[in-house]
């Protein structure tokens, strides 16, 4: 009886599970990401919390600070997706068992789940510490999901590009920041709307279009980015 070859998603899931197992084994990496998020939250609430600002300025400032915390907390782990393979010398083995697009999908999925974990812990803590009210939780959830996927796919693709370059950690920030600003701006705009009431569709549509374009481009270029 011939064995059925696993499909794209099950192989991508296997890469994601491998990355999760690797990160959980080295607990310090995961712990340091959450510790970074907690430190950033404490700093923000200490610096901004006691000051009374007009409601409009407050809501804009809070939304911006929330995304700064989410972005920089995630940025401590996102470049590691492919860099880790090069550092541990496992890149060649991974290239043998899975094509670039599967590896990219698996690693993007792991980064996305990690981002969601950071968001699930940070957003309620942010809300409590800064007395930040969200009038449309469903709208905020949609923003976090769309923003998180865009952040994950772009960062994972760029991580593949910088993995074998010199000064990769600094280079990752230089390369990723200008590409992620068009994602962060509508994410902040939609977060402001979610805190003030209903989210108007425009920033969410921009986020969805950005995610779609980035995912398609990353899918088409994955093999080139991960080529030896």
């Amino acid at each position: 009886m011939s064995e059925r070859r696993p499909g794209f998603f099950s192989r991508a899931w296997a890469v994601c599970a491998k990355d999760a197992a690797q990160e959980l084994r080295r607990r310090v990496a995961i712990a340091s990401i959450f510790f970074f998020a907690a430190t950033a939250l404490a700093l923000v609430s200490y610096a901004v919390g006691p000051f009374g600002l007009p409601p409009e300025a407050r809501s804009r400032l809070d939304a911006s600070l929330l995304w700064v915390i989410l972005f920089f907390s995630a940025a401590t782990s996102l470049p590691r997706a492919f860099v880790r393979e090069e550092e541990t010398g496992t890149g060649l083995g991974l290239r043998k068992v899975a094509p670039g697009v599967v590896v990219l999908a698996g690693k993007a999925l792991f980064n996305f789940l990690l981002f969601l974990a950071i968001a699930v812990l940070s957003v309620p803590a942010f809300s409590v510490l800064l007395e930040w009210q969200v009038r449309s939780p469903a709208g905020l959830a949609a923003v976090v999901l769309l923003g998180g996927w865009g952040l994950s796919i772009v960062s994972t693709f760029l991580s593949a590009l910088v993995a074998r370059a010199g000064q990769r950690n600094v280079l990752f920030l230089v390369v990723s920041f200008p590409l992620l600003v068009p994602l962060l701006l509508p994410a902040i705009a939609a977060t402001i709307q979610a805190s003030e009431g209903a989210v108007d569709g425009t920033p969410l549509r921009v986020l969805a279009a950005y995610d779609g374009a980035a995912t398609c481009a990353a899918y088409l270029l994955a093999a080139v980015a991960w080529e030896d």
């Binding site: 760029l158 590409l179 425009t202 921009v206």
Partner: peptide, 19 residues
């Protein structure tokens, strides 16, 4: 990178300023 940037560039130049 150049191809990936060209795909996302319109969001920076044409979409983000209109948000």
């Amino acid at each position: 990178y150049a191809v990936f940037a060209a795909v996302l560039m319109p969001f920076l130049v044409f979409v983000a300023p209109r948000v």
